[in-house]
């Protein structure tokens, strides 16, 4: 079965969906992603759907699930790059993806995640400086 790769970038996880998903693949992604959040203690999840031409109610539910599950594990989820036609269709369908943050592109999504996570504890900041 196909698998969607998950990349780890610092404290964030990045998923770029390049193919149209069928249900089982989407469920597998949800599962892999949540396991990955737990394993890496990621603070943010970035899902790039700019290449996705359709988001239906099932896919919408998966995105919502990922956001809620990550939230419990203290990670924020941002969906980036939604196509205009997909956004219009989702609204008409009646799905507004509450709980999921959105951004125009990966760069703005990263920025949003950093803002959402906000503060870094004092010691950690020092630690960061040392590493850099």
């Amino acid at each position: 079965m196909d698998k969607i790769p998950i990349l780890k970038m610092g404290e964030f996880l990045l998923v770029t969906i390049q193919v149209d998903l069928y249900d089982r693949l989407a469920l597998a992604l949800e599962n892999d992603l949540i396991n990955m959040v737990s394993k890496t203690e990621a603070r943010g999840v970035l899902i790039d759907i700019s290449a996705v031409s359709i988001v239906d109610s099932f896919m919408g539910r998966i995105l919502g699930n990922i956001a809620s599950m990550s939230k419990i594990m203290d990670a924020e989820t941002v969906v980036v790059g939604m196509q205009p036609a997909v956004a219009i269709t989702l609204v008409e369908l009646g799905l507004t993806l509450t709980g999921v943050h959105t951004a125009l592109d990966v760069e703005k999504g990263m920025e949003l995640l950093r803002n959402k996570i906000g503060y870094l504890p004092k010691e950690e900041e020092d630690l960061y400086d040392d590493i850099i």
Partner: peptide, 12 residues
């Protein structure tokens, strides 16, 4: 309201 929702879904 629909227009606003769609804009938000796009991340704006």
């Amino acid at each position: 309201i629909k227009t606003v929702s769609a804009t938000r879904l796009m991340g704006a």
